[in-house]
Computed example of a mutant assay.
Amino acid sequence: MAFYDLNKEERQLVVNNIYEDCLTSFERKNLEKLLVHFSNEDTYIRKTAYQSVGKIYNSNFRLQKDILVYLKELLENENEKVRQTTINSAGEIGMYYFEDVISFFDIGLFDDHHSIRNAVIGSVKKMGEKNPKPVLEWAKNYLHHEDKEVRREICHGIELRGRKHPEDILPLLKELQFDETKRVRTTLVHVLGQISYKKGCLQKVVSHLNTWKNKALVQDAIDEIVDVHSEKRYAKFTALTQQEVIRYIDEHLQISKNNG
């Protein structure tokens, strides 16, 4: 039976049992039970497992060194679900101890399987929101990587921090403004739209775009920002109406004025 086919009390019992299985695996240095959960077909079982690992790491200092050793071993497992859950476990740890798990993301970025690379993106999002300084410093190292997918993944990964603090990621995004790869450019425009619609964010995004040199890219970003504020997108969640956004851009975007 799938996790969400259970009632609330049954789900809590499963969560408690998975936590105990993970803790016991580390304490007894036997990963058999841990692997059962890490490889489970049910996404929510795997999520419960990697969240449990994060909780155990954060509350059991004596186990931290061993946990990292075991996770490094699991990162080489042939099962992509195990590797994916391992990266997500590292993401839980990295929200507070990013320096301990940097190597996991250096490896995961180049995994052959897309689910592991997606787990890196998801982890960078949640780590960047909670622990931005070291995570963004790490991300800078990959902004100009020769692999276009790495550049795209980094761009996507830093998005969540930008939704509340666009000023933290705009300098990194700016470095991608002349990227010639379509997928990178599309992701960049998407992220600029996503970090524009919360209260106080549009002003920061527009102000920063005034310093960008790629006018065609800026115009694409502006089109996306306006569209994000439309009824078909996020109008129910935006701080400003679409008309207010258009008016603000017309008044404050210097590039549009320079293009006359």
Rank of each mutant, 00 (worst) to 15 (best):
I45L: 05
K140Q: 13
Q51R: 14
I169V: 09
F104V: 12
K55M: 01
K55L: 06
N16C: 05
L74Q: 09
K257R: 10
G200N: 15
K47P: 00
K236P: 05
I102C: 03
V226I: 15
D223Q: 09
I93K: 00
E76A: 09
S52F: 05
F104P: 06
I169D: 00
D147Y: 03
I249C: 08
E167I: 08
E146R: 14
S59Y: 12
V14Y: 01
N258S: 03
H145V: 02
L217R: 01
K198T: 01
C201R: 14
E244N: 07
V15S: 11
H165R: 14
E167F: 08
H229G: 07
F237Q: 15
F3C: 02
N58Y: 07
D111Y: 11
A2C: 03
E10A: 05
T85F: 01
T211R: 03
P171F: 02
K130H: 11
D112P: 02
E149H: 02
G54T: 12
T211N: 10
G108L: 01
N30V: 02
I158Q: 05
N7T: 04
P132G: 09
I87N: 00
E129G: 01
I255L: 15
V82T: 14
M95S: 12
A49F: 09
G128Q: 15
I195G: 03
K33Y: 08
A235T: 10
Q203C: 08
Y57W: 01
E92Q: 15
V184G: 09
N60E: 11
K125V: 00
L202N: 07
D168L: 05
C155N: 15
F104C: 05
H113E: 14
K213G: 15
D106G: 07
V124K: 03
K130Y: 08
L13H: 09
E10P: 04
F61C: 00
K199Y: 13
V218H: 13
I246K: 05
E251R: 13
E149Y: 13
D223M: 02
Y19V: 00
I116A: 03
S196H: 06
R247L: 10
F3L: 11
D220F: 08
F26A: 05
M127P: 04
V226D: 08
N16I: 10
P134V: 15
K81I: 01
K257L: 01
K65W: 01
N259W: 07
P132C: 10
Q219R: 03
T48Y: 05
I225N: 04
H113G: 04
G108V: 01
M127I: 11
R46E: 06
D111F: 12
P134C: 03
R117A: 10
K29A: 14
Y50V: 00
Q219V: 04
N58T: 02
L176W: 10
Q177N: 08
K182T: 15
T211P: 03
I67K: 03
Q203L: 05
T211M: 09
C155M: 09
E41R: 12
A49Q: 10
V245F: 10
E146T: 13
K204V: 14
N141Y: 13
L68V: 09
V124R: 01
K204H: 01
K29E: 15
L143H: 04
F98M: 10
A2G: 00
K29H: 14
L202P: 04
T43P: 06
